[in-house]
């Protein structure tokens, strides 16, 4: 077998393998370089950056950019709010989604079909931004932390994934608990929840990433409230400031005159990293749950 394999290594095969290796290395460079470059800029002196030529590491290393953003912006509060919404939404979503999904695994449940239909249709019917905004406003959800959590509670996509997973669990465990006199809620908490842990981890992670990355709800509902700002929203504001100011040579001359100053470009890089680092740190360890969720979801779709 190995001999025949060796024989098959024709020059064309070798050339192909080399091409493959080069292609993959290029892919890695294109993926990682922009991130590494942003890190380098975030640790480099702001005015020095504008001279160009920063690639993989800072030329004039400084922590000044980070010090400035933590001093001048509302970043620590934003960080707290971002963490709070991520944690609270993930926990509530996992619990409520699995609870509804559990009732849908009961074949004789009177409202089973109606509930499934109500959720599935929400994947296709979207009332749009303005009616949604007016509703939230009428409900008192503007200038309110809960606007991050409540309107999106229990998504149809998560519900279908969890229900599909629950249906694959053999019913005998549940039945024996029922014979022992356990109620539906007890069975759900004590038996179903632990058994569905892998898929719950998946939807918790999807929810957490969504929550961490969203800024539009802050922008629309809580933009004027400093206490409810989020990290991504602060980054978005920094981004639009940088956008309006960078690119003109006159500006470069101005900032060069004032030494040791931050520039919109370096501020942008620093905030980008503050928002990206938590995800970059946890992602490699949780990758398998994300991939599992994708494949589970696509089975149903």
């Amino acid at each position: 077998m190995s001999l025949s394999k060796l024989k098959k290594q024709s020059p064309a095969d070798i050339a192909f393998n080399i091409f493959l290796a080069i292609f993959m290395i290029l892919l890695v460079i294109i993926t990682l370089y922009p991130i590494v470059n942003t890190i380098a800029i975030s640790f480099n002196d702001g005015t020095d950056t504008l001279r160009g030529g920063i690639y993989l590491w800072p030329r004039v290393p400084t922590l000044y950019n980070y010090e400035t953003i933590f001093k001048t912006t509302n970043l620590d509060q934003a960080f707290l709010v971002s963490v709070a919404r991520t944690v609270i939404a993930s926990v509530l979503n996992v619990f409520f989604t699995s609870m509804v999904a559990y009732t849908l695994t009961k074949r004789d449940y009177v409202f089973g079909k109606a509930i499934t239909l109500i959720y599935v249709l929400t994947m296709y019917i979207n009332a749009g931004l303005i009616p949604g905004y007016l509703l939230n406003k009428a409900l008192g959800l503007t200038n309110n932390f809960w606007v991050y959590i409540i309107p999106g509670l229990v998504s149809a996509f998560d519900l279908i994934i969890v229900r599909t997973y629950m249906k694959s669990i053999p019913g005998s465990l549940m039945e024996s608990a029922e014979i022992d006199g356990a109620g539906e809620f007890t069975i759900f908490i004590k038996i179903m929840l632990p058994l569905t842990a892998p898929v719950l981890a998946t939807i918790a992670l999807f929810c957490a990433v969504n929550q961490w990355n969203s800024w539009f709800d802050t922008f629309i509902y809580n933009g004027s409230n400093k206490n409810l700002t989020t990290l991504q929203y602060e980054l978005m504001k920094a981004l639009s400031t940088a956008m309006n100011q960078s690119g003109s040579t006159q500006h470069v001359a101005n900032t060069e005159a004032a030494a040791n100053q931050v520039t919109p470009v370096s501020i942008r890089a620093a905030i980008t990293m503050v928002a990206a680092v938590p995800i970059l740190c946890v992602y490699p360890f949780l990758q398998k749950y994300f991939v599992q969720g994708m494949t589970l979801g696509s089975v149903k779709e």
Binding site: Q232, L239, M243, Y283, F290, V291
Partner: peptide
Amino acid sequence: QTISYMPHFLSWIIVVGIVQNVLSTDSGI
């Protein structure tokens, strides 16, 4: 695979920041 999946988890704001950085006229690659 691990490296190529990663950008999916960055928010659009971060990606836009990176795009502006890469395409900038003074220091973009």
